[in-house]
Amino acid sequence: MERLPWLRRLFPFVLILALLAASQVMDNYLQYIVNLVLIYVIIGIGLNFLLGFAGQFAFAHAALMGIGAYTAALLTTRVGLSFWLALPLSGVVAAVIGAGAALPAMRMRRVYLALVTLAFAQLIIWVLINWNAVTLGTDGVDLRAPYLFGWRMRGDRNTFYIVLPVTVFLYWLARRVLESHVGRAFIAIRENEIVARSNGISVAWTKTLVFALSAFYAGIGGGLYALALGFIVPDSFGLGQLTLHFSIVVLGGMLSLYGAVIGAVVLTTLPEFLRDVQALQEIIYGLVLMVVILVMPQGIVGPLKRFGILPREVLARNWRRLERRG
C-alpha cells in the first residue's frame, strides 16, 4: 500500500462502501458483530490515546464506557431525552469524570497510577450497582431507540447506520488530533515530562486533555454499546471488559490508529470462533496476548508496516509532501 498512493487514499472509502453493501445481505447476528467491531474501534482509539500515545497507565476505561452506556440509557428511558442528544452527552459526562482521573496522574506514574485508577473504576461500578434509585442496580436498564425521520431506529441494521458514521467521524477526528501539536504533546509527555516542559508543553494541561479525550471516546463507545445491546448491567463494565480494551490496544498496536482497528476486529470476532470451546476462551485470549507481547512488541501493525502493507503514521499533517524533497 506504501507504493500505491491512490490505493491508500481510496481505501477508507472502499471500506465504508463495502461495509454498507455487505450490510444489505448480512443476517442480524453478523450485523450485530460488525456493530460491536465498530464500537470497539472507538473504544480502542480512546484507550490508545491514553495508553499508547500519552503513555498513561490508567485502568478506568471500562468503567468510563459504563458511564457512557448508563448516561445514554438513563437519559433516554428515565429522562425521556432523545438518543441524538443523549449520545453526545454520554461522551461529555464520561470526559468530565475521566478528566478527574487526570488529577492522580499529576503526582504518580506507572503502577501507582494503575492502582488508583483501578480503584476509581471499581468505585464507579460499585455506584452503578448500589445507587438503586437511579441505576436500578444489578437489574440493569434498557435504552429507548431513537427516531430518524419518523422511523424507529431499532434492530441491528438500523443501529449500524448510526454506529458507522459515528465511528468514521471519530476516527477522522482522532487522526486530526494526532497529526497536530496536541498529538505531539501526547507523545512528548509519554517519553519524558522534563523534556516536554522544557519545550513549552504544559504537562498538567496535556494530561487533563488526554484523559478527557480518551474518556470521551469511551463514553461515546459506551452509549453506542447500550444502543447495540438494548440492555445493560453494571457487570458488563468490570475487569473482563477492561481486559478486552487492553488486549485490543496491545494486540493491534500501541501508537497506531490502525492498531485500534485491527485489534477491535480480531478481538471482537475471535470469541465467535471460540464459541464451541467457551471454557478455553479466556486461556486462548491470555496465550494470544502473551505471544503477541513477546513476538510483536508493536502489535500486529508492527510487521504489517515493516512489509509496507500498512502505511507509515507520522504525527504531522500532510507530511507526505516532504517525501518528494528528500
Partner: peptide, 14 residues
C-alpha cells in the same frame, strides 16, 4: 521511534 520532523515540531509547540 519518531521521525526527526516530529521531534523538531515538538519544539514549536508554543
Amino acid at each position: 521511534q519518531q521521525t526527526v520532523l516530529e521531534n523538531v515540531l515538538i519544539g514549536l509547540h508554543t
